[in-house]
Simulated assay, not measured.
Amino acid sequence: MAPRPRQSSEAEEPVGQLVKQASEQVSQLMRQELRLARAEMQQKGKRFGIGGGLLGGAGVVGFLALQALAATAIVALNLMWPLWVSASTVTAVLAALAAVLAAVGRKQVGQAAPPVPEQAIDGVKADVAEIKEKAHR
């Protein structure tokens, strides 16, 4: 029997084509995933913008309601006291409330500073130290 000639070039060619096709398909899949992610983020961005606008509108209407409530309180107190005393009383109560809210808010902002994820950084440092320790063993 005569030895059969090797057909390595024919066998390798389909494998090469398969690798090329797989590479193209992965690239195409990645591009499609990126387009999908971009579309999703655009949709979420639009919803975020609409939601933010609605929350802003709610804040304005809430502020107007607070002003109406203050006027109502002044009118109600005017039944017992002169108008200037009623207005001064409501103003003093609102000023005291604003001072308390400002103090609590300032304390919260102070606790949030500095704006660095300290716990996450400490966790990463601990992980790196552990990896280094295990690598030296």
Rank of each mutant, 00 (worst) to 15 (best):
M1D: 07
A2Q: 11
A2V: 12
R4G: 12
R6E: 09
R6W: 04
Q7G: 02
Q7V: 08
S8I: 08
S8T: 03
S8V: 02
E10S: 12
E10F: 00
A11K: 09
E12C: 09
E13Y: 09
P14M: 07
G16H: 00
G16P: 00
Q17G: 02
L18P: 01
L18C: 12
L18A: 14
V19A: 13
A22F: 11
S23E: 10
S23A: 15
E24H: 07
Q25T: 06
Q25G: 05
R31I: 13
R31S: 10
R31Q: 14
Q32E: 14
E33S: 15
E33D: 08
R35M: 11
A37H: 13
A37K: 15
A39V: 01
A39M: 13
E40D: 14
M41A: 10
Q42L: 07
K44M: 01
G45E: 03
K46F: 05
K46T: 01
R47D: 05
F48Q: 00
F48R: 05
G52H: 03
G53V: 00
L54A: 03
L55D: 15
G57P: 04
G57C: 10
G59R: 04
V61D: 10
G62C: 03
G62N: 09
G62F: 08
F63W: 13
F63Q: 12
L64R: 09
Q67H: 07
Q67V: 12
A68Y: 04
A68K: 09
L69D: 14
L69E: 10
L69S: 13
A70D: 13
T72Y: 08
A73Q: 13
A73W: 13
A73K: 04
I74Q: 05
I74T: 06
I74P: 01
V75K: 10
A76P: 00
A76F: 06
L77A: 07
M80H: 05
W81A: 13
P82T: 10
L83S: 05
L83K: 00
W84Q: 06
W84P: 06
S86R: 02
S88F: 02
S88W: 04
V90F: 02
V93N: 12
A96K: 03
L97N: 08
A99R: 00
L101I: 02
A102K: 06
A102F: 09
A103D: 00
A103Y: 10
A103L: 04
V104R: 08
V104F: 09
G105N: 04
R106H: 00
R106A: 11
Q108S: 09
Q108A: 07
V109F: 08
V109Y: 06
V109D: 04
A112N: 09
A112P: 05
A112S: 10
A113T: 05
P114C: 03
P117Y: 00
Q119P: 04
Q119L: 14
I121E: 02
I121W: 06
I121M: 06
I121V: 06
D122M: 15
G123Q: 15
V124S: 03
A126V: 10
D127A: 13
D127R: 14
D127E: 07
D127M: 09
V128I: 12
A129G: 08
E130P: 11
K132R: 14
E133R: 15
K134A: 11
K134E: 02
A135Q: 14
A135N: 07
H136V: 10
R137H: 15
